[in-house]
Structures are given as C-alpha cells and as structure tokens.
Design a protein around this nucleic acid. Sequence first.
RNA 1: GGAGACUUCGCCUAGUCUGGUCUAUGGCGCCGCACUGCUAAUGCGGUUGGGGUCUUAAAGCCCCUCCCGGGUUCGAAUCCCGGAGUCUCCGCCA
Length: 486
Amino acid sequence: MPPPAGRLVIRSGREYHRPAPAGSTESSPAPLPGPGAAGRDGSIWGSTRLPDGGVRSSMLDMELIRKDREAVATALAKRLDPAEVNRALDEIQRLDQERRALIGEIDADRQRRKAEARAYAEAKRAGREPEVVAPEAGRKQLSELESELDDVQGRLRTAMSELPNLPADDVVAGGKEANRVVKTFGTAPVIEKVRDHVELSRMLGLVDHERGVKLGGSGFWMYTGMGARLEWALLNFLIDENVKAGYEFLLPPHLLLDTAGFAAGQFPKFYDDVYHLDRESGPRGQFLLPTSETAILGAYQDEILDTTTLPLKRFAYTPCYRREAAGSHSDERGTVRGHQFNKVEIFQFTLPEQADAALEEMVTHAESLVEKLGLHYQRSLLSAGDASASMRKTLDIEVWMPSMDKYKEVSSVSWAGDYQARRAAIRYREPGGKQTRFVHTLNGSSLATSRLFPAILEQFQQPDGSVLVPEVLRDRLGVDRLTPGR
RNA sequence: GGAGACUUCGCCUAGUCUGGUCUAUGGCGCCGCACUGCUAAUGCGGUUGGGGUCUUAAAGCCCCUCCCGGGUUCGAAUCCCGGAGUCUCCGCCA
C-alpha cells in the first residue's frame, strides 16, 4: 500500500526525480507512474508554456556558448574543474547541433505534409478526385524524428541545467578561504564572562528546545513567552522597514510545485535538501519552500513584465524548511541551524542595466536593518565556490557571535543575472523594439531572525544574565530588558 | 468530495454542433502614419509567444502555438481520451 497522497514524508528524490546523467540514453528523467503522467518533455520541471526547446532549455545563453565558448569556459572554471567544463560544453554543443539538424528535418517534413493536405482540399473543392498520398509511412517517419528530438532536447536540458551560473568578473575562484571581508560595522562588545545564546535563552525562558524536539523531532525548537514575542517583534520590525524601502509585501504558499524549485535553480542540485510532499503520480510534485526566494521568483514564471514597472520590488515572510541532512556542526546549537526557521526575503526583478545599483541598494538596506538593531557585523564578498551556484555574485552580511568568536550569516544578497529568469521564463519587452529579453533577478535576506535572535542575546547580554532589548524593538515588546523573571 | 458550464493571439469576443475557404472574426487598449493652428475627432496601417534558417544587422522565408498532453484523419480551434485551471450548484469542514 502506498502512503496516501498528501502525507508529508522525507523522501530521497534520487530514485525518480533526478534527471538522467549526461550522455544517458534515457529520453527523460521522469518516467513517472500513474495516469496523466509527465508532459511532453517528460520532465517534472518542464515548462508549462514553452515547448520545443524554448527559453527554458537554456540556463546559460546558448548564443553565448556558440559565439564565445572561451569566455563561458573561463568563467565556469572558477567553479568547476576545467576538464569537466570542457566535457560538459562539448556535450552541450554536440546536442545543440543535433537538435537543430532534427528541427530542420522535421520542419521540412511538416511543410510537405501541409502542402499535400491543402492540395487535397483544393482538389475536392474543385470536384476532382483527390490524390491520396501514402500517409502511413510518412507519419511514422515524422513521429520517429519527433521522439528523437524529444530525446535530444531532454538530454540538452539536463546537461544545461547542471551547469552553474557564470561568476561575475570580480568574483574570485576558490572556496570559503577566498571570501573577502569588504566592510565592518561597529566593534565587538567587550563581555567579561560570555554566556552563549542557548544558556541565555534557557535562563530567560525564551526558547524551549526539549518540547520543540518532542513536537518536530531533532532540529526543531519552540519559541516561548518573551522569546516568541521577541521573534515576532523582529519580524514585524523587518516587515515595516521593507515596506518603507518600497518593497511590496507578499505572503505566498509554503508548498510549491516542483517547477518553482527548478526555476530558482534549487533543483536539480538541491532536490534532496528540501522536504517533498509524497504524491504517487504526476509531474506536479510539491515541496516545502527552503526560502521565500523560490516563491517570489516562481510567482512571476512565464510572464512578460511591463518595463515601466521595473525594478519590481517584492518581499515575503515565510518560514524556511530545510532538511539540513549534511550533519550538524557542534557550534551551531540553539536556533543557529534547524529544519524550520523564519526569514524575511527581499527580491527585485530589474532591467540588466539596473542590476548593479539594485545589488548595492539591497545590501545597504539589509545592513541598515542590522545597524538599527545595533549589532556589530561585517560584509563579505563570497568567492565563486562558496556562493550559491545560481548566482553571479553574492555578498554576505555576517553578525558577530561572541560565544563562537565568529561571524555568522544573517543575510545573503545575490545577483543572479538572467540565470533564474531564463529558467523561469521571465522577460520584458525592449522599449521601442518588439524583442523580449530576460530580466535580471536579485534576492536577499532581510533578515534571518533565527540568527539575529542569538546575536541579540549574546551581544546585548549583561553581567547579571539579563539582556538589553534593542531600542527599535522596545515599543513592540513593552520592555527594555529581558530578565529571568519575565 | 459530487454534478454541470467554461478556457480562443494584452483585455473582451466570433468561430466548435455540421473538420478543409481559420494563414482565426470584431471591439477596446497600445504603437506608427496622415489630416487638423494643442495631448480632441476621423482615416489608414501595425500589434500572441516560441523555435529554425539566412544575414554584420534588419527584412524575408519555414515550423510550432486557439489551456496542457495524447489519439483519430490526407487534414483538428472544431471530433475522441487524459490532465490542469476558472465559475455555478450541492456536500463536508477549521
């Protein structure tokens, strides 16, 4: 007996949602069971609207690969082994050629058949006996070519979808060690005897880890009392600030269709890192969003945006659900890493030429929030290897955690170029011209409260174990200090 | 959850019963041009989105696109099957 549809399970996606490996002869990644089954392109994340190897087939610009393969290879080499890059590009170019050759044959064949049907109708209208052209053979040949094309396009899409974005020029190769701190705000407070946030929230009755685990299992917690109010006050503070900065507030569904995960670039790479709803059949799988970025981008899939509305600024609050299967770090206790945490996310859809300014605006805005809370932080420019694969450039805002003697990310602000827009088919029309082009997308946390919360406790702790409430939150909380009694 | 109606190129809409002249009608909006001593009226023209080909580029040409997928047929917006969505009524429910 299969589990009932709709039951939430932690499921490995590997058995049937992964695309076929490059070079495989599988025509599609998803021979899904059940009625209705997969769409024409056989993939769960195939476009709902753009068939025939349309825009969604290329995450990177195929034109660019054809015309300046060297530039693409050089940029990708910041993230991948050069030999691997070459192999992938060879495969892609071979499939691209094969695809175009097949399309040529199919189009010619269709043109011939259309002419024959017209001639038939013409003859009949004129009262002549129409000449029947051997239909069977011709049709069979065409459908064979078509399925061959489906196969090639499926493989091309798979190969393309596994390539990361091209890192920006000022993003260097390397991993964490190559990240560069480019700005620091404030100084680390001097604290004689540092209590960590877990101890503080226990003393102050802010977070109940035991009951959280009882409810959700390992990796969950429950905010309680003033802790819940502090978390809520933070969220409301962030929401108000984002509205003031000109972003429109969205409260999206938390369950999204797989197409949205693909569009954002989270699938196929991170398929196994999110929670999937178990459904027995069909390509319309659903998952719990790992960040509202996925929802904001997905909301505009397949749309041609009115140029006058750009840059389109949106923000959303949702919990973020993540499997975090990679194993926990010993220093990431408390609310620093869990399967569910709260985050407010800002997002912009821009013209390509607006993207630079938008990135700076978003980072500065996110930083202003941390500053208003009075927290000491630094800004880092991430290296190609440490940034998310969908992004051309990422800046992290990292807040000081006294107990760890480390800076932890509270915001990650990124420019995706047109990578996500291609996957999601989000375009704008050239003013004057009739051509459509892909928008640029940018996203950033503003902010992750599960990281702000411990930073506030630790940076503002007092010798007696109480914690000073940041001034901007005092009205919302009704107290200026958290003490054990309350 | 059950029943019915519906989904057409930005919006509205004709066409679907009775397959071909649909290379999709008309209106609105938008863009351009003409005319007029203002941005008004009128007239003319243009206006889905993809892919391929050719080209420095544009234009042109070809294929696909009438919610999505499949089928029947020489030929599908139109007929058949499956799916998605919207609306109405009924049922259930926080």
